[in-house]
Simulated assay, not measured.
Amino acid sequence: MHGPALVTWLLAALAVGSSLYCLARLRGPGLSCGAHAAAGRGRAAHEPNVAEALMGLGMAGMALQPGTLWGWPFALLAAAQVLAALRPGSPALRAHRLHHGIGALAMAYMALAMADGPAHEHAHHGTPSGLPLLTGALLLYFGCYALWSGSRLLSVPGAAVPGGTTATGTATAAADGVSRACRLAMGVGMFAMLLSM
């Protein structure tokens, strides 16, 4: 990633933290990083956790060590997610798969576009990598996604809800809030990586 080393390390830490949270949620029955997965059971219920964890680890790895090596696995993941989104199923799960397909496609694009960045940084300092129109479209998508995720995070009910919320309800609301915060962090991280191209 082009940019200050501190920003790169902070982005990697944020991505790893989100990824570890999603991996931890795999251990709980029916828990998911996204509310979208509530409609599914079994493998489908854990699919959003796995997708979020893979994206987080990939973002961290690519931020610290950019290269074309990251492009091919993300291109395969993008194809798998987009094809899965085309299959019949709940609209929420299909939207979640499509979002992860776009995210994986953006990661593949960044990996391939920034592959020669560190080697030629002095020769092309300040020259953007990639296709400006595609980069702009992805920036717009992830910027809007981050704003949408942030607005949803603000709508999570607090711990002190009138009407006698049970401890389980409060814990569920808190877990949903952390899940939304993870999605917001991933959206902002993707936006930052695209911006640094």
Rank of each mutant, 00 (worst) to 15 (best):
A108F: 04
L10W: 01
L14H: 06
L69V: 09
R97I: 01
R25C: 12
T135G: 12
L10M: 04
A80P: 08
R183F: 05
A181F: 10
A123R: 14
H36G: 00
G40P: 03
R43H: 05
L140I: 10
H36K: 06
L83V: 13
P132H: 12
Q65T: 04
A60D: 03
A174W: 15
M62E: 09
G187P: 07
L57Q: 02
L139F: 07
T170L: 00
L195P: 00
A108D: 05
H96N: 13
V7I: 03
P128I: 01
A185F: 03
H122V: 08
A185C: 11
Y141L: 10
C33D: 09
L57G: 08
L10V: 01
L83D: 08
A181W: 08
M193Y: 14
G40H: 00
L69Q: 12
L194D: 01
L154F: 10
M62C: 05
A39V: 03
T168S: 13
A173I: 01
P4D: 13
M186S: 10
L194R: 00
T170V: 03
G150E: 11
P128E: 04
V161M: 13
T135N: 15
M197F: 05
A60K: 02
P88V: 07
A173M: 10
T127V: 11
L139W: 10
H46W: 08
S179H: 04
V50I: 11
L54S: 13
P48F: 06
G34K: 01
S19R: 03
A24V: 00
G189S: 15
L77C: 14
S151H: 06
P132D: 14
T8P: 00
F142K: 00
M55D: 01
L14R: 09
A78E: 07
Y21Q: 01
A119R: 15
G143E: 04
L69S: 12
R183A: 11
P88M: 06
Y141Q: 01
T170A: 07
T165D: 13
C33V: 12
R97N: 13
P118V: 03
L10H: 00
A15T: 02
R43W: 11
Q81L: 11
G71A: 14
L54Q: 11
S18K: 02
C144N: 08
G61M: 08
S129Q: 11
G187Q: 08
M62G: 00
R183Y: 07
G17Q: 14
G34D: 02
R97A: 08
L86W: 15
P128S: 06
H96Q: 10
L184Q: 03
G117Q: 14
L134I: 12
A111N: 12
S90N: 08
R25D: 13
E47G: 06
G42Y: 04
G30Y: 14
P157Q: 11
H36L: 07
